[in-house]
Design a protein around this nucleic acid. Structure first.
Length: 571
RNA sequence: CGGGGUGUAGCGUAGUCCGGUUAGCGCGCCUGUUUUGGGAACAGGAGGUCGAGAGUUCGAAUCCCUCCACCCCGACCA
């Protein structure tokens, strides 16, 4: 079938639409892949949908390869089933509720529905394991959609669920997914890394995120290229010199510190060494106040605090609360002489340290010579600090960590029995005992793969697709077709020849100037441009341009398709 | 939800402060002629509820009020 560009709907844009800020968004609009319908709502145009289908097929092949079975579940769900797992409340505003039909919601994910179907017919350990997946539209009422298709209210997700009869089985299923995911991203041409993630309040035992480094990412990760260490900042650690105990250990003493509102003031104006400063932060964990001590300018990591305290919600005290609880304003708060007694915890770095300076809970005064063991009542020491770029990799490889922003393109998760228990999805084991099915949940964002790929693979002219996800393999540019019958005939001949070799061709047969064709071709980004013009053709030649490397080959008409085949395979 | 910004033709924009011709320009689009290896030239042409509603005024893109949409920052994000 001939793909004449003059007949296709490929509305490229010369200028950058005002709303698009990041390269992938701009190029997906300019390159006729998507159009926006509303905030966080996008239509795929034919070219963009071709890419999506290629990505989805790669996902499908890799999921099938680990024994996955494809379902297609409804997006419209009875709310009752979500009430049974308590997730109507947990999801809150993220879940769309149907207004003119009581009791229906739009599914933001499908653990509940999968578990429902598992309960219907999984009865015995002999029925397990299973891997079930689907590629389907998800609905999430994001408070703030942004960055084009990267954060939308409606998006395409591959979600998979493993059902096992043992925890060892879950490990096997989980590892299969980890491998499949690596294959998927590699085949899509993405540079990615995997991080251990916070398992959060989901009750799961393990979780990893597949990340693509990007300044537009909303996650922060610490990575080390040398050792391969990579972790979400929520759990990342580093090798950091311990703070030594001083041999001289005098009594605690109050001293005036006018104007000292920050640790830096203490260092600069009062000559206190950085590692002798103890910073105090007051937080509420599930409504209960805590004083948290951090060393020097270390940043308190709320995720770490949350898991240390096993709390569901953490928030900082506001100014008024701070004064009411401690008797001082920010800058003069410390563990000793608190107006209201509260639990004090500290970062591991401060364990058994002495000679410390901290606020006196009296404005413009601090204490010095604080000995954590002698003078404070610390309920516990935990790793609570956020890793900073430049600190040493915790593997001991000796290299510095980089702290980077990243976009989450996939997440694999050992769920356990939360949903099977809540919904009564059980099986009889080989001794006849009833057990909840042990589950895993595994997600991939299709649009995110596409947008991340474009973020990684573009230049000032446009997109640079790899063959595996390109809408077409070859962009055939016929220059001056109207004027030259020879050019036209050669184009038609080579199009057929390429197609016979299973190479997908987009044939630009439009009656426009060469410059327009070149620029559109560079914008749309097919891996190979086959350029046919009268000048080369008069010598029996055509030109082949590699979009990614920029290399050009002038070859004879007869050799051209073989060379293209070779170039496409070598990628 | 808080803060900031923007809405004028398919895209990009001028005009808005200080009300007053027929709302202007570039690109794109249509017709014709000439062009044809990096976004061609000339000539002619089509396309606008100036985000919506209500108001002030002889007169509103412009001033007042209300609402809506979109973008950015923050909050939020199994």
């Amino acid at each position: 079938m001939s793909m004449l560009q003059s007949n296709l709907y490929i509305p490229t844009l010369k200028e950058v639409p005002n709303d698009a800020q990041i390269p992938s968004h701009q190029l997906m609009l300019r390159g006729a892949m998507v159009r926006q319908l509303g905030s966080g709502i996008f239509s795929y145009l034919p070219l963009g949908y071709k890419v999506a289908k290629k990505v989805m097929n790669i996902i499908r092949e890799e999921m099938d390869a680990i024994g996955g079975q494809e379902f297609h579940l409804p997006a419209l769900n009875p709310i009752e089933i979500w009430e049974q797992t308590g997730r109507v409340e947990a999801m809150g505003d993220v879940m769309f509720h149907i207004k003119n039909r009581e009791g229906l919601v739009l599914a933001p994910t499908h653990e509940e529905i999968i578990t429902f179907h598992a309960r219907q017919h999984i009865k015995s350990y002999r029925d397990l394991p299973q891997i079930w997946y689907q590629i389907q539209t998800k609905f999430r009422n994001e408070p703030r959609p942004k960055s084009g298709v990267l954060r939308g209210r409606q998006f395409t997700m591959k979600d998979a669920y493993s059902l096992d009869n043992s925890w060892e089985g879950l490990d096997v299923s989980y590892n299969k997914h980890a491998e499949a995911y690596r294959n998927i991203y590699s085949r899509c041409g993405l540079k990615f890394f995997v991080v251990g993630a916070s398992s959060g309040a989901m009750g799961g035992s393990a979780s990893q995120e597949f990340m693509v480094e990007s300044p537009y990412g909303e996650d922060t990760c610490a990575v080390c290229e040398d050792s391969g260490y990579a972790a979400n900042i929520e759990v990342a650690t580093s090798e950091i010199a311990p703070i030594e105990r001083l041999t001289d250990n005098p009594e605690v003493e109050e001293f005036p510190t006018p104007g000292a509102r920050t640790i830096n003031h203490l260092i600069e104006k009062f000559s206190i060494p950085l590692d002798r400063c103890a910073k105090s932060v007051v937080c509420f964990a599930d409504g209960k106040p805590y004083l948290v001590l951090m060393s020097g300018n270390d940043e308190l990591n709320e995720s770490k605090l949350q898991s240390a305290l096993q709390a569901t919600a953490i928030r900082h005290a506001d100014e008024t609360e701070l004064f009411d609880l401690t008797g001082a304003h920010a800058g003069s708060i410390g563990p000793i002489n608190l107006k209201t007694p509260m639990t004090v915890i500290a970062d591991k770095r401060l364990e058994n340290v002495n000679g410390l300076v901290s606020g006196a809970n009296k404005d413009k005064f601090h204490y010095r010579n604080i000995d954590m063991s002698r003078d404070c009542k610390i309920e516990g020491y935990y790793d609570l600090r956020s890793v900073k770029g430049g600190e040493l990799c915790p593997t001991g490889c000796g290299k510095e960590l980089r702290v980077v922003n990243a976009i989450e393109v996939g997440h694999i998760f050992k769920l356990g029995t939360k949903y099977s228990q809540a919904l009564g999805a059980t099986f009889l084991d080989d001794s006849g005992v009833e057990n909840p099915i042990i589950m895993g949940s595994y997600g991939i964002g299709v649009e995110r793969i596409i947008a991340c790929f474009i973020e990684q693979s573009h230049d000032e002219k446009g997109i640079m697709f790899v063959p595996s996800i390109a809408p077409y393999h070859v962009h055939l540019l016929g220059l001056g077709i109207k004027k030259s019958d020879a050019v036209k005939r050669t184009c038609e001949q080579l199009e057929i020849e390429l197609q016979s070799k299973n190479i997908e061709v987009l044939y630009d047969d439009r009656d426009v100037s060469p410059g327009v064709k070149f620029n559109d071709a560079d914008l749309l980004g097919m891996p190979i441009q086959l350029i046919i013009g009268e000048k080369n053709l008069s010598a029996g030649n055509v030109e082949i341009k590699n979009r990614i490397t920029g290399e050009r080959h002038v070859v004879s008409v007869d050799d051209s398709t073989d060379l293209i085949k070779k170039l496409l395979v070598s990628k």
